[in-house]
Computed example of a mutant assay.
Amino acid sequence: MATTTAYVASAGTALPGEPVDNAVLGKLLGVSSEWIDLFVGTRTRHFGWDLGTGEVRRTLTDLAAEAAGQALEGAGLDPADIEFVVLATATPDTLLPTTATQVADRLGLNYLPVHQLQAGCSGAVQALDLGRALIGDGSRAGLVIGGDVTHRHLDIHRDRSRMPTEELVNYVLFGDGAGAAVLTAEPTDPVGASGGGVALRGVLNHFAGLGRPPGQTVDWYGISDRRQERPLLSEDYKAIEESVPVMAAEILWDLLGLVGWTVDDLDYLLPPQLSQRMTARIVEQLPVPPGIREVSCVTDTGNTGNALPFFQLQRLLPQLRTGQRAIALSVESSKWIKSGFALEKC
């Protein structure tokens, strides 16, 4: 196993269009903005498709390429410096060609490994883990990307007055977005930051769903079953509400044990970003010091799936000072995956 330390040189993000607030979304769905606030607590989200017509205006490729370009600029690197691309998503633009290769093409990258991971909320962490391994195998710099879009799973033409609550909530919970980070083999200061590099000290990626029913299902249709009525996106919210806070605490202890830290060593916490309400509930139950600084984004971005850790990274990196430490937690409820990572400013 490679033991070389990888460094997070920069992060970039992309959101499509103007923010959609609860009043606008509530009017479209026939529910009150107060109900949205009570159920998920998220204030705004962004969509790459038009709310009135359903027309797709920004694809995942568009968003991922924009975020990756921003990350490259933040690291002060050119595309020629990049030696691999890893992209994680649950909602690729097409099954083939992969969105990862489309993004590489958009960035002008060629003759390098390009990987795509099919995953939900844990995918961004899995991408970081694979990127770290590639750095350990001799690469000097690479791009890790995560993002998701909703247009395949949210149908604005459906009769929403007859939707069950567990399906309707998906229309207010999720948004579109992409994020990226540049990993390097040597400490590199993000442009505009001070001090040394940000070391990726440890990554956790554990399947923990043996024998458990899925908490979330993202389906897809082929030519033979496209007219079936089953929902494309469904969740067991009771299982998620019960399990995610417990799993988040387990991830915290697992990561601390992995890197040899205690909770008192932490300066920043990047908690799971399912929704504002759920995030607040998780943080309240975590055994962290009162002074720890939380880095969250879901209130403003909505749940953007694989993009979320990169939005948190982008907010965190300018704040980190030499010697400070941060820990990120992520729970994927599809088949219950515990994931996270630990960072330290050198």
Rank of each mutant, 00 (worst) to 15 (best):
G76D: 13
A328H: 14
P164H: 09
F311M: 12
Q273T: 07
L128R: 08
W220D: 10
C121M: 05
V283K: 11
R162V: 03
V149G: 01
G323K: 12
L258V: 00
L232G: 14
N205Q: 15
W253C: 07
V244C: 05
D148E: 00
A104H: 01
D37A: 15
V149Y: 04
E18M: 11
L107F: 05
E242D: 13
L107H: 01
V20M: 10
P309H: 03
E18G: 02
G147I: 01
T44C: 10
V244K: 03
G136L: 00
Q116M: 07
H151F: 14
G142Q: 02
D50C: 08
T59N: 11
Q319I: 03
D21F: 13
E34P: 06
G69H: 01
W35N: 12
L96F: 15
M1T: 04
R132P: 03
L317T: 05
G30Y: 01
G120K: 00
C297L: 04
P290G: 11
A100V: 05
E66D: 08
L274V: 12
R152W: 04
L274K: 03
S243N: 08
G52L: 06
L95E: 09
G146K: 06
S33A: 15
R140M: 11
I223V: 06
V103S: 08
L29I: 13
R45E: 05
F84I: 08
L15N: 04
G76P: 14
T262P: 00
A208G: 10
L210E: 15
E241A: 13
L204A: 12
V169L: 09
T5H: 10
Q312L: 13
E18K: 14
V20N: 05
T99E: 00
G340C: 01
T4M: 12
L270A: 01
A11E: 11
S333W: 04
E250V: 15
L63P: 02
A328T: 08
G48P: 04
P190F: 10
A127C: 08
E235N: 15
A193L: 09
L343N: 07
L274P: 02
R227F: 01
L107V: 01
L38Y: 11
G215L: 00
T42I: 13
P187V: 12
L204F: 02
V295D: 13
V203E: 07
T59M: 01
L232W: 09
R160L: 06
S139E: 08
A193I: 05
T165N: 12
A6Q: 05
L269S: 13
Y268H: 13
P164Y: 10
V31D: 06
E235Y: 06
P272I: 10
I327C: 07
R140E: 10
D50E: 11
A90P: 04
R162M: 10
A180V: 03
